[in-house]
Simulated assay, not measured.
Amino acid sequence: MHDLLIAHRGWQRRYPENTLLGIEQALLLGARHIEIDIQLTADAVPVLCHDQTLERLSASPLNINHCLYTDLAEHSAYEPQRLGDQFLGTPLSTLAECLTLLADYPETTLYIELKVESAKTFGADCIFEAIHPLIQHCANPYAVISFSLELLQLFQQRGGHRVVPVLSSWQQAFSEEVQILNPPLIFCDIHLIPEDSTPADLPYPSAFYEVDRPELAQQLLSEGAALIETFAIGEMLNAESTANT
């Protein structure tokens, strides 16, 4: 299972999410797949952040889409509500910085989630122009992922990028829009699995997220899942190591 786990926003259970700190700690443990979220600043700098605002990350109401990248320097990505002040001073990270870090781990696959909020604010073309130059010569295997199939289609057609949909419903996997993309993988929340279905019923290899228990991961893999995404990458990897000793 070791090579089948995706670190969801880095080692999120232990460190602030979407930070170089949390990502590097996951890599040092041997994570072979990393997932990150991207929002754009007002001057079109791709920043690692799940939300539009810095409320959770920095206890600030600042909207990333409405501020310049330089405005972020005074804010810390430390998640005070969840982690207290122990990571105060951790900087927000950019996609460019993340790609530089990952280059030292060339066998690690990066999944770059483009957030729908940024696409709505700036438009698909702006998102493409901000992201494409950074990833077109990426040293790592990677995929652009998103809930927006329109955005994925643009990246596939204009940039030749490997694109992976994040499903909004189980039925969407069988839709014509997804079929057009012919994705090598699809991401799916475990809560979307119908009671009478298993991962093997999907028409594409699947990665399931919101999985933090080794036994559930093993079950999903045995039922046909290709990959498992988890916030608890360290705990899951350590549990596997313990089981093998």
Results as ranks from 00 to 15, higher is better:
144 V>P: 01
181 L>F: 11
67 C>N: 06
120 K>I: 09
207 A>G: 09
110 L>I: 14
173 A>R: 04
178 V>L: 13
111 Y>K: 05
183 P>V: 10
122 F>S: 11
140 N>V: 01
20 L>A: 06
180 I>C: 14
132 H>M: 13
154 L>C: 11
185 L>C: 08
182 N>H: 14
93 S>D: 10
244 N>G: 01
70 T>D: 14
224 G>V: 12
205 P>V: 06
65 N>T: 03
164 V>W: 00
119 A>H: 07
40 L>P: 02
172 Q>S: 04
204 Y>G: 08
192 L>C: 06
146 S>L: 12
245 T>R: 15
239 A>G: 12
192 L>Y: 12
109 T>P: 00
245 T>M: 11
40 L>Y: 03
41 T>H: 06
199 P>I: 12
18 N>Q: 09
244 N>C: 09
57 L>Q: 10
224 G>K: 10
98 C>F: 02
173 A>W: 04
175 S>N: 09
213 R>K: 14
26 A>S: 10
37 D>K: 06
64 I>Y: 02
178 V>W: 05
108 T>G: 04
108 T>W: 03
219 Q>K: 15
141 P>R: 13
178 V>R: 08
12 Q>K: 14
112 I>T: 12
74 E>T: 13
67 C>R: 04
16 P>R: 07
82 R>A: 11
165 P>K: 07
231 F>C: 01
44 A>K: 14
69 Y>M: 03
215 E>Q: 14
15 Y>S: 01
31 A>C: 10
75 H>Q: 13
151 L>E: 05
82 R>P: 00
179 Q>K: 15
234 G>M: 07
140 N>P: 02
45 V>A: 05
174 F>S: 04
126 C>Y: 00
128 F>N: 00
198 T>N: 12
57 L>N: 04
80 P>K: 08
41 T>Y: 03
